[in-house]
Design a protein around this nucleic acid. Sequence first.
DNA 1: TATTGTTATACTCTATAACTATA
DNA 2: TATAGTTATAGAGTATAACAATA
Lengths: 154, 154
Amino acid sequence: MPKSADAVATSVLRASALADDVSFLLARANAIALAAGNAALAEHGLKARSYSVLVLACGEARPSQRDLAEFLRLDPSQVVSLVDELQSRGLVERQPDPADRRANVVVATDAGRRLAATAGEAARGAEERVHADLASDDRETLTRLLRTLAFPSD
Amino acid sequence: MPKSADAVATSVLRASALADDVSFLLARANAIALAAGNAALAEHGLKARSYSVLVLACGEARPSQRDLAEFLRLDPSQVVSLVDELQSRGLVERQPDPADRRANVVVATDAGRRLAATAGEAARGAEERVHADLASDDRETLTRLLRTLAFPSD
DNA sequence: TATTGTTATACTCTATAACTATA
DNA sequence: TATAGTTATAGAGTATAACAATA
């Protein structure tokens, strides 16, 4: 099977020093996964960012906006925009935290939970295609190693 | 050792569905590595992007701007800006490709090679700190698995 | 006709500072 | 004093279309 001109050009650079650099591989793999995820979520009116907030709002943790910002490594002001948009679409609610009246707890509505379920299927389908080259035990290993990098010094 | 309030908040969300999502872990690990890499490269006047172009220009591949765009997953117009900046600092040169007069081959100057060497040490130091929690064989495994995702269907 | 590099433009994302209301 | 949320804004990054030169 003939390779495209692009693939040939890329394969030459794959002998470069960068091709063994973990940070570069991380960036490139993330770019591919993000593009696939965003494409799959677009038909549900979501992106990776808004989907992440929605999923966290569906869980038991009842996160404040501050919690979301830290977990997703976003600025608190970015979380404001994301929650604004999801709330205007009736997918999440801001509930006052009785223990701290400064804080808003972000909780998914029933509609939000339904969308999270269907969008989640699309996201998992995209992930499945991106990871098609990995065996099942390789995926588990990758998850474990990435978790170590994503949440340091546990 | 007491955890910070932030760490506690994060640990609650770590029980969420997202915390097992490979795409999410990839994004978070990449964000951490990118921040550390950019911080280390800043003292040399570089960022991850410009450093990547410089390293590829130091190799034997003699890449065109198109090659760089595809390998780094950037738009060709973004490569123009990156090469402009490196060239204005005397770190790379645009050389006409004798085989295709439309194309520019991007090659590092001697000054560019010297900077790539010293900046590379800083970048490897940052990577070392980011990967301190991983054993040596885990790093090799991670590199292999990420390469599969970063360059699909080999 | 198609491709490389380039310019221009608009859009999104990111980072910062300042403000309010609470703690 | 410090923190949660918000607003405003500027800067960086991203995506698109159009063009000249060349294939």
